[in-house]
Amino acid sequence: MDRRQLIFRGAAMAFAAPTLRAPAAHAAPPSGQLPARAEIIAVLRRVADQWINGHSDSGDNGWARATFFSGLMAVYRLTRDARYLTYTRAWAERHNYGINGGVTTRHADNHNAIQAYLDLYEIEPEARKLTASEDTLRHMITDQPGKDDDWWWVDALHMAMPPFARFSRLRNDDAFAAKLYRLYNHTKRVQGGPGLWAPTLGGLWYRDDRFLPGGILSPGGKPVLWSRGNGWAAAGHVKVLKVMPPTAPNVPEYRDTLTRLVTTLRPVQRGDGFWNVNLGDATHLPGPETSGTSFFAYGTAYAIAAGLVPSATYLPVAARAWNGLVATAVHPDGFLGYVQNVGDRPESSQPVTYDSTADFGVGAFLLAGTELAGLVS
C-alpha cells in the first residue's frame, strides 16, 4: 500500500486520503519497556477493585457491562482471586444466564454476555448456564439460514464472533464456525457495497455504511476510521483466534486480518502511547482515549505472543500504550479515565477527559493488561 497517495472512490465522489500519521509528542514519551508482571497485576487489581467497590449493583447484561465482565474474568484467570469470580457469578445469576432481547434476537450486542457465561461455565460446568446462549446462536443458524447481514456495524465482530467460535469448539460442531464466517464475510466484504474492511488502508475498518467512501468525512475532509470501532474488530479477532484450532477453516484469514490491523496501527500511535479517536485524521478531536488504545494494546500483545508480528518491533508499541494508559488514564485510586463513552464516531460523548469512564472501557483495559502480563515475568 502506498501511504503517500491512497485513493478512495465512492458512488458519487472520489477523494485522496491522507498519509496516516501520529501527531508529535508534547511530553516525554512513555517507556517502550513493559514493567514487571507483578506491577501490571497490581494496576489491574487497583482498576478492577475500584470499579467493583463503586458498583454494588452489578448492572444489566447488555453489551457494555458484558465487556467489563469479559475483562474481569480475564483478571480472574490471571490472579485466581475469588472475589472476581464471585462478583461475575452473582451478575450472571441475577440475569439467570439469559439473553437480553430473548433467545430469538439476532442483534450482536445481545450476544456479548455469552462470553462471560462461557467463562463461568468453563470453571463451574452446569448445563443450565448455556441453555439460552446455545438456543440464541442456533436460532441464528437455523432461522433464515441465508440471512447473513445481521452484523452491519464493526462493533458486532467483538460482540458475537467469540460466542460462535467458542460454541463451535465446545460442541465440536462446525455449523457454528460456518455461520460465524458467513456473517463475518458479509460485514467485511459485502456490507454497504464494498464491505466495512478497507484493505487499501492497511486493513482498517469503517464503523458502518455511513463512513464508507462517499460518506461522512472528518472536518478536515479525511476518512473517519473510528478508533474504538477498530478496537472492537481487533478484540473480536483475538478472542476467536484464542479458541479456534489453527487448522480450522478461515483461521488463516482471521490471523492475517489481525496482523494487518496491528501492523497498520504502529505508525499512527501517538507519542504519549495512545491512539487518536480518528485513525484517519490526527487533527480530528486529538487527545488521549482509553478504550481504543486498550483494545489495540490487547490486539498487539496477542499478536506478539502468537508470533504474528516480531516482538522486537511490536513489544515497544504495546509497552508505550500500557505505560501511557497507566500514567495518564489511571487515577491513584484505580478510577480509569479518558474513556470515550457510548457512541459510534469520534464526535460521540465528547469531550473525553480525565474523569470520563465507562464499563466497557474498564473491560478493555483489563483485557489489555492480562494479555500483556503474559509477555513478562
Rank of each mutant, 00 (worst) to 15 (best):
D272F: 08
L258I: 10
L261R: 07
H284M: 15
T259Y: 03
G287E: 05
Q269A: 05
F296R: 00
M244V: 14
S291L: 02
V240H: 11
V268N: 01
K239I: 09
G273L: 02
T263H: 09
L258M: 09
V238M: 04
T263V: 12
V262L: 05
D272S: 07
V268C: 08
V243T: 15
T247Y: 11
A297T: 08
E253W: 11
A306Y: 06
G292M: 06
I304G: 05
E253M: 12
P288S: 09
L308S: 12
P246W: 14
D272P: 02
Y302V: 06
G299M: 06
P249D: 09
L241Q: 00
P249K: 12
K242I: 11
G292Y: 05
E289H: 06
A282I: 03
A248R: 09
G280P: 00
F274W: 12
F296A: 02
P249Q: 10
L308P: 02
V309F: 02
D256F: 05
K242D: 10
T257V: 13
D272L: 06
L265Q: 00
G307L: 13
V309E: 06
R270C: 10
T283F: 01
E253H: 14
A306C: 10
T263C: 11
G273S: 09
P246C: 14
P252T: 10
G271Y: 12
S294R: 02
P252D: 04
Q269C: 03
W275Y: 04
A306D: 08
I304E: 05
Y302K: 09
A305C: 14
L261V: 13
Y302W: 14
P245M: 11
R260Q: 14
G280Q: 04
A303Q: 05
P286F: 03
E289S: 06
W275C: 01
T247E: 15
I304L: 14
A301Y: 03
H237F: 15
V268D: 01
V243L: 11
V240K: 02
A282L: 12
E253A: 15
Q269S: 05
Y254L: 08
T259M: 07
T290E: 01
A305L: 14
P245Y: 15
